[in-house]
Design a protein around this nucleic acid. Structure first.
Length: 199
DNA sequence: CCTACGATCTGCT
DNA sequence: GCAGATCGTAGGG
């Protein structure tokens, strides 16, 4: 029986807690007739109002960031470095622009499809141990920007996987040195001792 | 219109 | 550890 995470989970006002709680949840996609799923093992939190590392900070509404201002539980997918599609989940009340970046996952179902999309023969961490890699493995591209995660294309399930708080490590976020003191915020969460987290 | 650059990844040293 | 790939977005003229 499927337990899709409800909008009320995403709608809460603490993006850091949401980010932490998403570790151990299962990200599922059904695109191009292929179903895949993977456990989230690494996330990062971005706060739209206080966080210089967030695309929407301080209140930048543009064609790219307008997605961040939509309702919670919507996918924010954007292109980075011209090559990589990065998958985020919009959280908090509509119009506040908080988001969680999914940085790494452990494949569960449809592993062979994920390997094929990544052009790899074997199932190994390099299939999905980075934000650009997992998006490619799960078939997520910018064409899925604004997708509602309560629909049938991309969603997150709670499969009852227990992740105790002391099994999650908090650290600095990756690649946000430009954000000044906000670059030091411990808003990156990884599953300890998992070989599936990014480098 | 034009330019600079990025929430990354890969391959080479 | 570091440079290059590659293109949409944002900001300036």
């Amino acid at each position: 029986m499927i337990k899709k995470i409800p909008r009320s989970f995403y709608e809460r006002d603490d993006v850091v807690s949401i980010s932490k709680e998403l570790v151990g949840k299962v990200l599922c996609t059904n695109v191009d007739g292929v179903s895949t799923s993977a456990m989230i093992v690494e996330t990062e939190a971005y706060n739209g109002r206080t966080d210089r590392a967030c695309h929407a900070y301080p209140d930048v509404r543009t064609k790219r960031t307008e997605t961040l201002y939509l309702k919670p539980g919507i996918a924010y997918v954007y292109l980075c470095y011209g090559i990589h599609h990065l998958f985020n989940i919009v959280t908090n009340k509509e119009g506040l622009a908080d988001a969680v970046l999914i940085r790494a996952v452990k494949p569960l179902e449809g592993e062979s499809y994920m390997a094929e999309r990544r052009g790899q023969e074997q199932i190994k961490p390099s299939i999905s141990n980075g934000p650009g890699k997992l998006a490619q493995a799960l078939g997520i591209t910018t064409s899925y920007d604004k997708t509602d995660l309560l629909g049938e294309t991309i969603w997150v399930e709670d499969r009852g996987i227990k992740v105790p708080l002391d099994a999650i490590k908090a650290g600095k976020r990756i690649g946000v040195e430009y954000a000044g003191k906000d670059a030091d915020l411990p808003w990156r969460f990884t599953l300890k001792n998992s070989e599936w987290v990014s480098r």
